[in-house]
Nucleic acid binder design. Structure first.
Lengths: 196, 196
DNA sequence: TTGCGCATACCAACTAGTATGTATACATTT
DNA sequence: AAATGTATACATACTAGTTGGTATGCGCAA
């Protein structure tokens, strides 16, 4: 068990606890106790609780969310299909627990944006990234005659992300996977409007 | 200053603090200290912190959100116009602070749904109500030839609420009123699709 | 033998909640 | 009408448990 492993194991567990309890609800000492290690290890790797949260965003949430959207830059295929396929995949892969706990990104956004500017800015980078790469994909679609010429690509991309997060939120209160599917389906219908 | 006043003043302040800090972030004693009263008063009216949160939902959040949607039952006019007007009004009336702090309903949903079943159910009643009354309004529109006959009214109503909450969320990280306006505008465009 | 990776032991501040006291209004009895 | 009881609406003081964080020590590999 080398050092990097321990740090990443801690981060992974912290992510899970934050996912369920929120950052304010995170009890770092309880998490590490569950892992069978002690505060010595925790504070060896992270100077403070805030640092844990920021590291979770930077090292777990951001990569996992932006991977797909960055990949749009090199992706071939109709941008509307690429975006729809991604949303469809999110819906297909979502477990009841994913729905019950909600979108980790959205959760942190709602909780931490007004409380901590460092958090907000890091989270904003992630969401802006999602919107940015989607916008560019749609714009390429316009240039290639795949997307309607009068499309406000930035507005559509932004609303797609908003609709996604909204779908997570509604499904979360309702504790309903099928609610999530229905709302994602409506979002797919919306995206289809902009196909050439 | 009679008793009812004090109770309602406490609730109002608690609502504000929850709106900013979340329920877990609420420090009830700090709030009442700011009000110039003491724990005696607080625990005279509320048996526990949870009771404060549930009272805020039942007595402040639920009425304010459901007022409009209930009114749809008696409203005359095109249902799509009624819904669009409401969304437009939300956008027009939103202050920068409303955006920065986010939608109180959505905030609590994201934070509390997985943590407290009592909270989740009370919040679900509110969101279900919003969707329910919107669905019925659209269905009456179908019956009266104002809304396209093949419209899945429940799906549209649900997605409208999801889009609304999503718009709040995205605008919250971005700290941008214009982002909110853009996303609401997209939602209005979406609703327009179902006009007969 | 020095520094890394952790464990142990501790602490100050906070936090929800309680136990108890008290002033005032209002009803009841005398 | 005066005296007495009683419920309401708080205030004060306290506590047990928690929480984030620190100080220190110690084994082990390079």
């Amino acid at each position: 068990m080398n050092a990097t492993d321990t740090r990443e194991r801690i981060l992974g567990r912290m992510f899970q606890d934050i996912h369920k309890n929120g950052f304010q609800g995170l009890r770092a000492d309880r998490v590490i106790a569950d892992m069978g290690i002690t505060k010595g290890a925790l504070y060896h790797y992270f100077p403070s609780k805030d640092a844990i949260g920021l590291a979770v965003i930077a090292e777990i949430i951001e990569p996992s969310y932006l991977a797909f959207f960055r990949s749009l830059e090199q992706a071939k295929g109709h941008p509307i299909d690429l975006l729809k396929d991604h949303l469809q995949e999110l819906a297909d892969k979502a477990s009841p627990d994913d729905i019950y706990l909600g979108c980790p990104l959205n959760n942190l956004v709602q909780e931490m944006s007004p409380l901590n500017e460092d958090f907000r800015q890091r989270l904003k980078v992630v969401m802006d990234g999602m919107i940015h790469y989607s916008t560019r994909a749609l714009e390429r679609g316009v240039a290639q005659g795949q997307v309607k010429a009068d499309t406000d690509c930035a507005a559509v991309a932004s609303f797609m992300v908003a609709g996604m997060e909204g779908a997570y939120g509604v499904a979360k209160v309702q504790k309903s996977l099928s609610s999530f599917h229905r709302n994602i389906q409506q979002l797919l219908n919306y995206l289809e409007l902009f196909r050439m």
